[in-house]
């Protein structure tokens, strides 16, 4: 399901699937504006791909690979924090 990744010096990162980086950087937010969240109950979760650590391996995870399963996606502020 998830493929193992080569580890280099650059810190790998992921992002939303289907959104090109060019479009994002073409419009740097001059003033910070409230962007509407795309999340709504009853609507599809936006797909994304991201590097991950699991069981001693560095892998790449894509949300759409989990179709057919229930998923709980948890965000948190940071590793080695307190809560």
């Amino acid at each position: 399901m998830s493929e193992e990744m080569e580890v280099g010096c650059a810190r790998p990162t992921g992002g939303p699937v289907g959104e090109s980086i060019e479009t994002a950087s073409e419009h740097p937010p001059a003033t910070k504006k409230e962007e509407p969240s795309m999340i709504q109950v009853g609507k599809k979760a936006p797909d994304f791909a991201a590097p991950a650590y699991q069981n001693g391996k560095f892998i790449s995870v894509k949300l759409s690979e989990y179709l057919g399963k229930w998923v709980v996606l948890c965000f948190y502020p940071g590793d080695f924090t307190f809560v």
């Binding site: 939303p16 959104e19 910070k32 962007e35 969240s37 795309m38 999340i39 709504q40 109950v41 009853g42 609507k43 599809k44 979760a45 936006p46 797909d47 994304f48 949300l63 759409s64 989990y66 179709l67 057919g68 399963k69 229930w70 998923v71 709980v72 996606l73 948890c74 965000f75 948190y76 502020p77 940071g78 809560v83």
Partner: peptide
Amino acid sequence: KVFGVFDEDAGVETRGRFIIDPDGVVQ
């Protein structure tokens, strides 16, 4: 950012928890 949990001032993500069903729909 796409999930609405990225705090730009702090540069971190808040404690968002999303339950997604087998069709990929947020429940």
